[in-house]
């Protein structure tokens, strides 16, 4: 790691203030992606602003038909939450399969979403459930949040405070794991929501996205058979040593089918 200055604040305002003073600062939540990146000297922030001391960012609350999850809530806490398991079991399961148990004890929902790794799991849930990302400045609709590979709608001094997930009628997430990293080669989240059927795809392309054609097909008939004829264009797919674009496109359909089956 390169040298940096370390700041830990007990409040959102304090953290933002530290960020504004920093030359090239970075917020760090659980650090499960950030620290390995820094260890490989692939990132060189001048300042690290640790959000780990901000109590108000931690916790899960039920607000009517939604669940609000504080940004610094760990994956393990989401997975173990009775409220999440009852209202959105898909989300508890998704959180309980990110990384491994030790990673889940440190990694947070806010960190995952703000990082927007193309192969991360949470972004698929945010998109498919039509969640709202709440920040210290505003509320951002899930559909508007993820703007590109490792890019989001967040400003430099903006940090996620919580994510609010409306309860779906049914939802399922199917992940095809990279055998090495265990990240998603393809992850598909299918949800029946008040807003209709929503399909979100992670891992397959440079940024999580809605599978609009799959959604259309499923609106006609919510069954795995309905996905079969959908064209998933290969040319937009990621390709690496683990999966070619062709295989990823195929997996998008397979994982969608399986998610649909798990919803019904």
């Amino acid at each position: 790691m390169y040298e940096f200055s370390y700041h830990k604040s007990a409040s959102v305002d304090g953290a933002v203030e530290a960020m504004n003073k920093a030359e090239d600062g970075k917020f760090v939540a659980g650090g499960q992606t950030m620290l390995p990146t820094m260890k490989h000297r692939l990132a060189a922030p001048s300042d690290i602003i640790d959000l780990g001391g901000i109590a108000e960012l931690v916790g899960i609350t039920v607000e009517g038909d939604s669940i609000n999850i504080g940004a610094m809530t760990t994956h393990a806490a989401v997975a173990a939450s009775g409220d999440v398991q009852t209202m959105i079991p898909m989300l508890a399961k998704l959180a309980g399969n990110i990384g491994d148990p030790a990673v889940r004890n440190r990694g947070t929902i806010g960190g995952s979403i703000a990082n927007n790794d193309p192969a991360a799991d949470y972004p698929a849930a945010v998109l498919a459930l039509g969640a709202t990302v709440k920040t210290n400045k505003r509320e951002i609709a899930g559909d508007d949040f993820f703007t590109g590979m490792f890019e989001t709608a967040l400003a430099d001094d903006e940090l996620i405070t919580s994510v609010s997930f409306p309860k779906p009628t049914a939802a399922a997430y199917m992940k095809f794991e990279n055998p090495a990293s265990r990240y998603a080669i393809v992850g598909v989240c299918v949800a029946k929501t008040d807003d209709g059927i929503r399909v979100a795809v992670t891992g397959a392309t440079p940024c999580v996205h809605r599978g609009k054609q799959l959604e259309e097909a499923l609106k006609g008939e919510f069954s795995s058979a309905a996905c079969v004829g959908v064209d998933v264009p290969e040319d937009q797919m990621n390709a690496d040593i683990h999966a070619s674009a062709e295989y990823r496109a195929h997996l998008v359909k397979v994982m969608t089918k399986r998610a649909v089956d798990a919803c019904t």
Partner: peptide
């Protein structure tokens, strides 16, 4: 709770 101590700063 279990953590990976290579992925946590001592100051944390």
């Amino acid at each position: 709770k279990s953590v990976k101590s290579c992925t946590m700063l001592a100051v944390m």
